[in-house]
Simulated assay, not measured.
Amino acid sequence: MSAWLIKSEPSVYPFSQLVSDKKTVWDGVRNFEARNNLRKMRKGDLCLFYHSNEGKAVVGIAKVAKEAYPDPSSEEGEDWSVVEVSPVKSLTEPVTLEHIKSHPQLSQMALVRRSRLSVVPVTDAEFRTVLSEGKTKL
């Protein structure tokens, strides 16, 4: 099983909306590296849900409910993909980007190194550390 970090602006689609919806299509990814990460996701993989731009913090955990398939919102001939995700739980305490950057075990996360990407891999150690820092157990 792999772990990932997915980003959404809370004004567009907050984690609370995923909890309310129970499942969503993770669409609109228009970067080839992020798209390739979507295509590597497997059903059951866990995802850190990150609020970008406003809040800038990991706030929840989601899981991949359906593996990658063609993005129905893409224009004809475009090669984009989506996955479906469902909520697992909210973090007890959000883990801010500032905290991640200053934490010795998290400062090299793809979130920091590849900050423009909306979907990035997370190592098992990083995933466990974020949960610990967020005072959250699965």
Rank of each mutant, 00 (worst) to 15 (best):
S8C: 05
V120N: 04
D71R: 06
M1W: 03
L5R: 03
V95A: 13
E78C: 04
V112A: 07
H51I: 12
L117V: 12
T123Q: 00
E9H: 04
K66F: 13
K63Q: 14
N37K: 10
V120P: 00
R128H: 07
V120C: 00
V25G: 03
W80N: 06
V64K: 06
D124H: 02
L18A: 02
P72A: 07
E67Y: 12
E67L: 12
Q17A: 14
D27P: 01
A34L: 07
S102M: 05
K135V: 07
S74T: 08
S2P: 01
S20H: 05
K135H: 15
V59A: 11
L97E: 06
S115K: 08
E76W: 10
N31M: 07
D27E: 09
S102D: 10
K22T: 02
T24S: 05
A125M: 00
L38E: 06
D124R: 00
G60V: 14
S52Q: 08
M109D: 00
A57D: 08
K101P: 12
E67N: 13
S81F: 09
K22N: 04
Q108H: 04
V112F: 02
D79T: 10
I6G: 04
G60I: 12
N37L: 13
A3C: 08
L97D: 04
S118C: 02
T129E: 12
K56Q: 13
G60A: 06
D79N: 15
K40I: 07
W26P: 02
R35D: 11
L117H: 07
S11F: 05
G60F: 11
L5C: 01
D21K: 02
S20G: 05
P87L: 15
W26L: 00
P121E: 05
V119N: 00
V82G: 06
F127A: 01
K63M: 15
G77T: 08
V85T: 09
S11I: 03
K101C: 12
Y13A: 05
V130D: 03
W4H: 06
S86V: 10
I61W: 12
P87D: 12
Y50H: 13
T96R: 14
A68G: 11
D71T: 09
R116T: 10
E126S: 05
V83K: 08
S52A: 14
A3D: 00
S20N: 05
K66V: 10
L38W: 08
R39I: 09
D79H: 10
K56W: 06
G77K: 07
L131S: 03
K22I: 03
I100K: 04
V82A: 03
S90I: 11
D71E: 10
V25Q: 08
V19K: 06
N37E: 15
A3P: 01
N53Q: 14
E67F: 12
P94F: 15
S73C: 07
E126W: 00
V88T: 09
T129D: 02
V85G: 08
V82H: 11
S115P: 01
P14F: 00
S115H: 05
Q108F: 01
E75N: 11
F15A: 13
R114K: 14
P72Q: 04
R39H: 11
V83P: 13
I6D: 03
K137W: 04
E9L: 03
E133R: 11
T136S: 08
S73E: 13
V122L: 04
S107L: 01
V122M: 02
